[in-house]
Computed example of a mutant assay.
Amino acid sequence: MEHVTITPSILYVGTPVALLVTENPDGTANLAPMSSAWALGQVVVLGLGPEGQTAVNLAVRPELTINFPSPDLWPEVERLAPLTGRDPVPSSKPRHRYEPDKFAAAGLTPAPSGRVRPPVVAECPVRFEATAAAVRPDAGGEFVVIEARVLRVHAATDVVVPGTQHVDPARWSPLIYNFRHYFGLGDELGHSFRSETPRVWASAPSKGL
């Protein structure tokens, strides 16, 4: 396998898309897409631009929901991409426009949460209610790193292994952001020795969406 040295402008090698919902100063909900998220136990680490409304909201109102869309929702996600909840629009977002009602603009539906004030996204099969336990600058000083402690997980019944607390990886496929292109998962190749849902538990064959 031959390699070359490159200098890509972004490093999104394939990460799940998340829709973050936070509370604005007037009590309305701000909805924002992002793809810099990873989980460590019951904590989800998020990377955000410091001038976006999401980072501004979390600095003073730490509650949020983290919603994971399925691949078929990529058009709704993309409709959110050029929108910002900041007015005036920050100079760092010259291609964005201000939109106060992002749920309506994207064609998505807010639904009540149980333990936090911001709503969840009704159309997303997997949703977390969380609180920002830490908000700090990243090592380069260009972004904000959020450590969000998950308080409650919502999962659509058709992606849960019946009778368990486990998401069925054969039925759940996240929307993947791969170098600024959208993808779903392909066929399963195997599972980790730590998996609690090996193939004997799966209720359907894995299919890419």
Rank of each mutant, 00 (worst) to 15 (best):
V145F: 03
G208S: 04
R61L: 00
V44D: 07
V145Y: 07
T54E: 01
R95D: 12
A139Y: 11
V167Q: 07
W201I: 00
G49R: 13
L83V: 00
E23K: 03
S206P: 10
V44P: 11
N67C: 02
S9M: 15
P88W: 07
Y12P: 00
E129T: 03
Q53A: 10
E147P: 06
P118T: 03
T197Q: 06
G41I: 03
S173M: 04
P50C: 05
P90T: 13
F179D: 11
P62G: 07
S206E: 05
P169H: 07
A111V: 13
A132C: 02
E142S: 14
K93Y: 13
A170M: 09
D72F: 11
V167N: 04
L20P: 01
V160L: 15
R61T: 01
F103C: 10
R199M: 05
D26F: 04
D187W: 05
R149T: 14
A39Q: 11
V116G: 04
P205Q: 08
R115W: 14
E129L: 04
R61E: 03
S35G: 15
P118H: 03
E78S: 15
H154E: 12
S203T: 15
V167F: 02
R97V: 09
E129P: 02
F68M: 08
L40P: 07
S195Y: 09
T22N: 11
M34T: 09
V159R: 06
